[in-house]
Computed example of a mutant assay.
Amino acid sequence: MTAPFLSVTDVRKSYGRGSNRFDALRGVSLDIHQGESVAIIGKSGSGKSTLMHLLALLDQPTDGTIALEGVDTRSLRGRALNRTRNKTFGFVFQQFFLTANTSVLENVVLPMKIAGIGRGERKRRGMAALEQLELADKARNKALNLSGGQKQRTVIARALVNNPRVIFADEPTGNLDSATGAVVEDILFDLNREHGITLIIVTHDEELAARCDRRIHIRDGLIISNEALAA
């Protein structure tokens, strides 16, 4: 088997000090390979969202190491960290995080704007992503005028514009009805299987987790199971 894309070794994350200290992760180790689909499941407060934030380099562990393609991510600082995060990862969140009064296209191209990509290239790639998600006709619409499913597809388009190798999805269907949620799920798994994008999903939804290649169950800051699911 190839070397892991992400490798987590004895990672711990604590908040506060003394009597107010809370140990969100208490020694987590796991490997994730390029092209996998992985579900991280657990109850609220289990540590699953904390783990996702650490994997996505949005936060740093209190102790332990996270390696990205064999490179200890503690060596990444400032612009190098931001560039790595922006180029490597795409994010799909339950809350959408769209700017309501700007256009769908403007929302989609934001990661490229942050990356310093020129206006013409931003528009070209943004429209290509919207075409892929069947939203090109909504490009000029304000985000506030979209349905829930359209908003989530816009978020997926935004996640794709920098050609990420990993998409993190935090409860991606949590705000959607079951039919719309099923469409969004299909889009994410198509991206995983047809384009080789690694998919890491944080969810309470056992049915969604069962669609992944692997399910990692966290309880009280510890991994209690890490199982490959039958194809």
Rank of each mutant, 00 (worst) to 15 (best):
A67N: 15
L68Y: 13
E69T: 11
E69V: 05
V71T: 15
V71Q: 12
T73K: 01
T73S: 13
T73C: 04
R74H: 13
R74N: 10
R74K: 14
S75P: 01
L76D: 03
L76S: 04
G78W: 08
A80L: 12
A80V: 08
L81F: 06
L81N: 01
N82M: 14
N82P: 05
N82K: 14
T84C: 14
R85Q: 06
N86Y: 00
N86S: 10
T88E: 04
T88F: 00
T88S: 04
F89S: 03
G90N: 07
G90E: 02
F91E: 02
V92T: 06
V92L: 04
V92M: 10
V92Q: 03
V92A: 06
Q94W: 02
Q94C: 06
Q94L: 05
Q95K: 13
Q95M: 10
F97R: 13
L98A: 02
T99F: 10
T102I: 09
T102R: 14
S103R: 10
S103G: 10
V104K: 05
E106W: 04
N107F: 06
V108I: 00
V109I: 07
L110R: 05
P111S: 03
M112I: 03
M112E: 11
K113Q: 15
K113A: 08
I114C: 07
A115T: 15
G116C: 01
G116Q: 00
G118P: 09
R119Q: 07
G120T: 12
E121M: 10
R122N: 03
K123R: 13
K123H: 15
R125D: 04
G126Q: 11
A128I: 00
A128P: 01
A128G: 03
A128V: 06
L130F: 09
L130V: 07
E131M: 05
E131V: 04
Q132R: 15
L133K: 04
E134G: 03
E134W: 09
E134T: 05
E134I: 00
D137P: 02
K138E: 11
K138P: 02
A139I: 09
A139H: 09
A139E: 14
R140E: 15
R140F: 10
N141W: 07
K142C: 07
A143G: 11
L144A: 08
L144Q: 06
L144D: 11
N145D: 15
N145W: 08
L146P: 04
S147R: 14
S147P: 09
S147K: 12
G148I: 10
G149T: 13
G149Y: 11
Q150G: 06
Q150E: 15
K151C: 14
Q152K: 10
R153F: 05
R153A: 13
T154V: 12
V155P: 07
V155T: 12
I156G: 01
R158W: 08
L160T: 01
V161S: 03
N163Y: 05
R165D: 11
V166I: 15
V166Y: 08
F168Q: 10
F168A: 13
D170C: 06
T173F: 06
T173C: 00
N175G: 07
N175T: 14
N175D: 13
N175K: 07
L176E: 09
T180A: 15
G181T: 01
A182S: 14
A182T: 11
V183K: 15
V183N: 14
V184R: 08
V184I: 13
E185T: 02
E185Y: 02
D186T: 11
F189D: 03
F189Q: 02
F189N: 01
